[in-house]
Amino acid sequence: MTDTTQKSHAEIDESITSRQEMSGLQAALKTQPFWVFIALIAIGVVMSFISDVFLTERNFFNITRNFAFFGIMALGMSAVICTAGIDLSVGSLMGLAGIVTGLVMQAGYGIGFGFIACMGAAAIVGLINGILIAYVRMAPFVVTLGMLAMARSIAMVISNNKMIYDFGPDQELFEWIGGESVFGVPNPVWVLMILTVVFWWVWRYSTWGRWVIAIGGNADAAKLAGIPVERVIVSVYVLCSCCAGLAAFLLVGWFGSVTNALGLTYELNVIAATVIGGANLMGGVVYAFGAPIGAALMELIRNSLLLAGIDALWQQFFVGLFLILAVLLEQIRNRGRS
């Protein structure tokens, strides 16, 4: 080969490797969360004409606080769904974790122990889910469906079916964390914002995040590449449970009381929010910003129907409609690409 052809080869190769497929904005345009975000804005604009109340600070405060709990749980759920799994037990787990927190604090142990007990209960449930799924190789749907029943039942047993509203010496602090705000932003929203950034970093920059995405793409290949697939899957379920536990801790603080019905059917909303936010049940896809955006859309629908004076009975209809539309959108875009 002559010198010139070699040089041109090198040049071509250089241009190939340094060529970035697209700019950051173009990349964002291709993602589901971006389009759901556009839908959010559109609904917001329409609502600002329909209702005077919509754009008020008070309404925004309420909307953001309401979806913060779901958003936090959806962050964990998106990790599970990224591995092509599912966790149906998060709603029941909220009930269990909430009751455990209540009982510990009612007994006068203080908020530190209350928090540890809450997260500990959540972690144990996640650990059981994860071990059965990763090592015993049971289907995630079945395992977590069983856990949905068991966790709720245990919450009923240990609460003796009674409401807890006395949280001992740290009651005030506990209620402040879940119910108050800093700089006009509700505390649960701060938690959601911080966690979203943390998750964004994890998915982009951590080895663990990279491994979770790889497992979702091709678990066999991940295993052959030496990734401890079972351990990573267990950690994903523990993480999802801990997010649910954290949401329960904040929610109980806001309510100022807890019953064993806390979080009943929340799993459906969380899964819907996660899917609307761009998660793919086949696994391998995850967006940190998808979780809060999906949760925000669902809360916005609820809020808009309320302000527009439409019967609240329609709420679930529209949530379901948007869920199907979101998945449809994703499929249409995929078809366009391939």
Partner: peptide, 24 residues
Amino acid sequence: VYQDLALCNNLTAAANVFLGREIR
């Protein structure tokens, strides 16, 4: 080099090359 290549379709070429041996 496996016959079925054992790659993760949802990751980039570079991510696949370094899978399990990421540079940190």
